[in-house]
């Protein structure tokens, strides 16, 4: 499987699309000057911008690498030669996933370092009222990376099902949007404002809340920006949730891909 991970990483590093996406990271250089547009919360704005930019780049990478990696292998007939080697399909699939996941984590680390530098530059010039919570910023970057690794598992599942890139790419984008809204929808349907809602609709919304991914618990931006202490118990639960959900997605993807005919 390490062999597949290695080849996957080589493929990503040599991909022009990846180079283009990473070029967006140049925008980090503009953060210090853009942050000064805020009159009072210069450092807070720099943290917001840095984390948002890092998150946006990781989203692009997760969608395009996750959604196209497997599809490209099938479309370009690479699978004919690779899957006829003594490698099980599940190992191939997990290797592909791990390669992309590892790359996302590496990219998050590099972009996170860029974010820290940008925030450091800004906070030196415009000291904030509260001390900068460096640990919370790093945690925000880490959990963002975890969220996108989770998203890649969905992309891999969709790729194992689909013969085109539409489902993997647009399905992954849809999951990203839905996963960011599930908690808000759940909170709404169980609030006083939704008292008049039909019970069936509420039950369906609750069921979907448990079935669909919930990305809100991965979002630590507020903790990072306003130095709100981290809830370690909650973070441990989020990691466990991510590991279990991702594993289930990959097992399902492997089962589907194992039966797929390479015509």
């Amino acid at each position: 499987m390490l062999n597949i991970v290695r080849v996957t990483l080589k493929g990503i590093f040599r991909d022009r699309v990846f180079h283009g996406i990473l070029a967006v990271a140049v925008v980090f250089l503009a953060i210090p000057s853009v942050s000064t547009l805020s009159m009072r919360q210069v450092t807070e704005l720099s943290i917001t911008l840095a984390l948002s930019l890092e998150s946006f780049i990781l989203l692009l990478l997760a969608v395009f690498l996750g959604g196209t990696s497997l599809w490209k292998d099938i479309e370009r007939r690479y699978t004919f030669s690779v899957l006829s080697l003594p490698i099980t399909r599940s190992r191939y699939l997990f290797g592909r996933f791990l390669g992309i996941a590892l790359f996302l984590i590496l990219t998050a680390a590099v972009l996170g370092a860029g974010a820290l530098v940008a925030v450091k530059v800004v906070s030196s010039g415009y000291p904030p009222d509260r001390p900068v919570a460096w640990g919370a910023i790093m945690a925000a970057v880490g959990f963002d990376a975890l969220k996108y690794v989770f998203l890649v598992a969905f992309a891999v599942l969709f790729s194992s099902l689909s013969t085109s890139f539409f489902l993997p790419v647009f399905g992954t984008i849809a999951i990203f949007l839905v996963g960011g809204a599930t908690q808000q929808v759940y909170d709404y349907v169980h609030s006083a404002a939704a008292r008049t809602m039909a019970p069936l609709v509420r039950q369906v919304a609750t069921l979907l809340y448990y079935l669909l991914p919930n990305f809100s618990s991965f979002d630590l931006k507020v903790n990072a920006i306003y130095a709100v202490p981290l809830d370690y118990h909650g973070l441990a639960l989020t990691v466990g949730y991510c590991v279990i959900y991702t594993s289930l997605l990959l097992v399902a993807a492997a089962a589907i891909f194992g039966r797929r005919e390479m015509k």
Partner: peptide, 11 residues
Amino acid sequence: YLPENPAFYDY
């Protein structure tokens, strides 16, 4: 195994 019209990781 040699596939018909083979294609390999071209990078």
